[in-house]
Design a protein around this nucleic acid. Structure first.
Lengths: 331, 331
DNA sequence: GACAGTCGTGGGAGCGCTCCCATAGATTGG
DNA sequence: CCAATCTATGGGAGCGCTCCCACGACTGTC
């Protein structure tokens, strides 16, 4: 906890001016080899680390970005989707000198997150898992450059977004069910307050409509395993689907377990398709047929786009990453 | 992204001085009701949010703390242990105006974490999951007040730590196995580079020694499910234990699945005891008998102790939280 | 009525940086 | 050989706050 050295002290030790030290630290414009060397050894000797607050006050940037997830910690930590997103972001940030700030909370009690972002806590933000109820998120988007993971609810001009084509991915999954002869096809959606859920539902419906089928049933979960099991229970109480398209692997796993518990065989009695292709898809028996979305790449791309904006470049506003149907045992 | 109002502008709008605005913002010493009111409306009108960098430069504190986890993201997100710790910390921070900074990384490539902490990025740090190989962690402890989750490897005078009594918890778990008539008892430990693993192993050994038994086998995992399965495979290849004490629920689950896959019944053929009592313990069939450690409370306490230190108080240096054996179906 | 103690307030002096302009010296060319 | 150009460097002026001291206007006391 030694008292820190300041730039001025380094300058004195190296026999140069503050400015020269600053140039060395920031690797900027030309500095003579002798000065360079003198400064570098002074830095090493004094164990100098530039003060973050002073630097960001003067330069008006923090070299930190936030990942905002309007979910409670349980959901956040329980879903491998977020783990991959974070891993992707971390990967993209690795090369840069930016730092990631994880801001996880529903509703932002006390406006801590909002004011942290607004009062210059970060240079920009990544926002995923956006619900209609999260008004605070919009205020954040007013304050700093934002990149959305998934289309924002209220799209404004010049929003940057990284997404997959949820509707056609869901279509593809549903089509697979149709192609394999299923006719009583139900879906377990995510919360209708999220655009991704709505889009997937719409893809589901349109695939059925094109095939001249009616949805057997539509029921909502919250992307968690428990909600998937609960949804399956409701489905079964109301009738006997021969296939279920679940909007997440976690919900698919919940449904699968509920079906097994009720003595139904998967895929013989009921086929199940999930969404994500996370580790979860491999953990079930049978393993899940699912829609793969490139979660790691999504995180990586989001961070890349934000960094590019912060660097003053003009990355593409919308990036749509590809999805793919992965056929395994469950359908 | 409106240009921000400064304290000076608020002062002008309210017809008072900078100082008075600062007093209002910091809720400090007496301000006349009229001034108070004038300032408050000026703040509301101008949408004023104090600048974080300026504030922390002047006051020499950031109002942020870090949680340092020297693990890769996969391990971090995969283990409910961390989820509970984070939830506990978040809970404790909720009332305060401190912010949590999650710093997850093995080895700290590029020293980003270390220098972030050292250059005044946070006022203090919480460190969990400390391995012998993580030298950078010590450098962090030199730079800011730290509270350890689990005893640090190199204990120095006046370290603050929140922990459970791992040795006696492991003893208790092992004793349960002995009491239920098991004699060929093996253990799956965590990495020997972590003190908690070593302590649990030691508790395991001493319970057996007291009962006049020899350990059937000791093999190490890394607390992950896969490593537990792998360890169980090794155990089976070498003989036939009739009980296994695993140092985490995740490893216990891995082991349990491996045993089932090999056609062994739990608990009839092999009894299993886990450690943590996370959600995982309830997800297996049979459910896990396990040592409950109060993970949420550990996070909460760690944060509480750190906050108390930062507030200039003198919290107890060592807090040992209680553990408890939870008997379910697996042993 | 003069003196000490309050209370609310203002403003100077930094906090440790970056940014920009000025300057001294070295180099070039007509 | 002197003006024009370039390179390396120094230092002033902030960035937006907090902290501390000082000041005027009141109160109360002997």
């Amino acid at each position: 906890m030694a008292s820190r050295a300041t730039i001025e002290e380094v300058a004195a030790a190296a026999g140069v001016s503050r400015s020269t030290v600053s140039r060395v630290v920031n690797g900027s414009t030309a500095v003579s080899p002798e000065a360079l060397h003198a400064v570098q050894s002074a830095i090493a000797e004094l164990n100098y680390v530039p003060n973050r607050a002073a630097r960001s006050l003067a330069s008006r940037q923090t070299h930190a970005i936030a990942l905002i997830v309007p979910e409670d910690t349980t959901r956040f930590f329980g879903d491998p989707f977020f783990a991959s997103i974070v891993a992707g972001i971390t990967g993209a940030l690795g090369g840069s000198d930016y730092l990631l700030n994880l801001l996880i909370a529903t509703g932002d009690p006390g406006d801590k997150m909002t004011s942290f972002v607004r009062n210059g806590g970060v240079d920009g933000a990544l926002i995923v898992s956006h619900h209609t109820s999260d008004a605070f998120v919009e205020r954040i988007a007013d304050a700093v450059p934002v990149v959305w993971g998934g289309r924002p609810l209220h799209q404004r001009p010049s929003e940057y977004v990284v997404d997959v084509d949820n509707a056609s991915a869901a279509r593809m999954a549903t089509q697979h069910l149709i192609d394999t002869g299923r006719t009583r096809i139900a879906t377990i959606t995510g919360p209708r307050t999220m655009l991704a859920s709505v889009d997937r539902l719409q893809g589901f419906r349109s695939a059925l409509a094109d095939a001249g089928l009616e949805p057997f049933a539509e029921t909502a979960g919250d992307y968690s395993e428990a909600s998937g099991a609960e949804a399956a229970r409701r489905l079964l109480a109301a009738g006997r689907p021969d296939a279920i398209f679940a909007a997440s692997d976690l919900m698919a796993r919940g449904a699968l377990r509920m079906l097994s518990a009720k003595g139904l065989r998967v895929p013989d009695d009921v086929a199940i398709v999930g969404f994500d292709d996370s580790q979860v898809a491999l953990s079930t028996d049978p393993q899940l047929t699912t829609v793969r979305q490139p979660m790691y790449a999504m995180g990586e791309t989001m961070a890349g786009v934000l960094l590019s904006r912060l660097a003053g470049n003009e990355p593409p506003e919308v990036t749509i990453l590809p999805t793919e149907l992965v056929v395994r045992g469950s359908a």
